[in-house]
Amino acid sequence: MWPLLLLVAFLLSPRARAGQIIGGREARPHSRPYMAYIQIRSPVGIKVCGGFLVREDFVMTAAHCLGSQINVILGAHNIRTLESTQQRIPVLRSIPHPGYSQQNKRNDIMLLQGDSGGPLVCSNVAQGVVSYGDRMGTPPAVFTRISSFLPWIRRTMRRFQEWRPE
């Protein structure tokens, strides 16, 4: 994992700002349908996170993206314009890892159950969830390793698989 993070660190531009593409290029519109844009309403205001669809009714993101009201937007290429492909889904249940620590960002992973916070993808497989880093996109960025949480992810998704609101 460290060699990959070092490679990413060298590719990132120190002058990049939020909302810019860092060390890459714009994806072909709608070529990443699993990507989610997450809007979080909390007592201090609105913040946004990235996430990705892991099943038709679960999104994975970072636990620090928890808030009182969360909406997931799927099918967006440009979030600043209303596209006919966009789906806005209110989150029914946020499930942060039980060992999440806000102080040191340990276990910074969360599942969001919807009615129907960005991944690190290597060889078309999600390997990590962005945990924290510099707001300007400069290295080092820290990722929570998904594979370390697979037992919890599977247990949690099984437990809530049959639950549906009335």
Rank of each mutant, 00 (worst) to 15 (best):
G114V: 15
I95Q: 01
Q103F: 06
H77W: 11
Q127D: 00
H64P: 10
G128M: 04
Y100L: 06
I79N: 05
R88V: 15
L74R: 00
L150K: 07
I70H: 07
T156M: 08
G133S: 04
F149M: 09
I146M: 07
Q103V: 14
P90L: 11
S68M: 13
D134F: 07
P96W: 01
N104I: 14
N124C: 03
P140T: 14
P119E: 03
I146T: 10
N71F: 14
A126R: 02
P98K: 03
P119I: 02
R135A: 11
G137L: 05
W152C: 11
N124A: 13
T156F: 05
A141M: 13
T81M: 03
Y100P: 05
M110Q: 09
F149G: 10
G117I: 02
V125Q: 06
S101F: 00
S123D: 15
P140K: 10
G75D: 07
V72W: 02
P119S: 06
A141G: 12
M157F: 08
S116L: 05
T81V: 14
F143V: 11
K105Q: 09
M110F: 01
T85S: 14
S84V: 10
Q127L: 12
H97M: 05
S94T: 13
L112N: 00
G114M: 10
C122S: 10
I79K: 08
V91W: 03
L92S: 07
F149R: 07
S101Y: 00
H64Y: 05
V130F: 12
H77T: 03
Q87C: 05
T138C: 09
D115C: 06
T138L: 10
C122I: 15
P96S: 01
L112K: 04
V72F: 08
A63M: 07
R88K: 14
R80L: 14
G118Q: 00
P139G: 15
S147C: 13
S101E: 09
L92G: 12
M157P: 07
K105A: 03
I153L: 09
K105I: 12
G133E: 05
T144P: 06
R106G: 08
A63R: 02
S123T: 06
S131G: 03
G67W: 00
L150T: 13
D115T: 08
G118T: 02
Q102M: 05
R93W: 12
P119C: 07
F143R: 09
T156V: 11
D134P: 01
I79Q: 07
P140V: 15
G137N: 04
G114H: 01
S84H: 04
H64K: 06
I73D: 01
G99K: 10
N107E: 11
M157K: 04
R145L: 15
R135N: 05
P96L: 06
I70R: 08
I70P: 07
V130K: 00
Y132P: 02
R106E: 15
R158I: 11
Q103G: 05
L92H: 09
T81A: 01
K105F: 12
D115G: 08
G117E: 00
S123F: 13
R145E: 14
S68D: 15
C65P: 02
V142T: 14
G67I: 11
Q86F: 05
R88E: 10
Q127C: 13
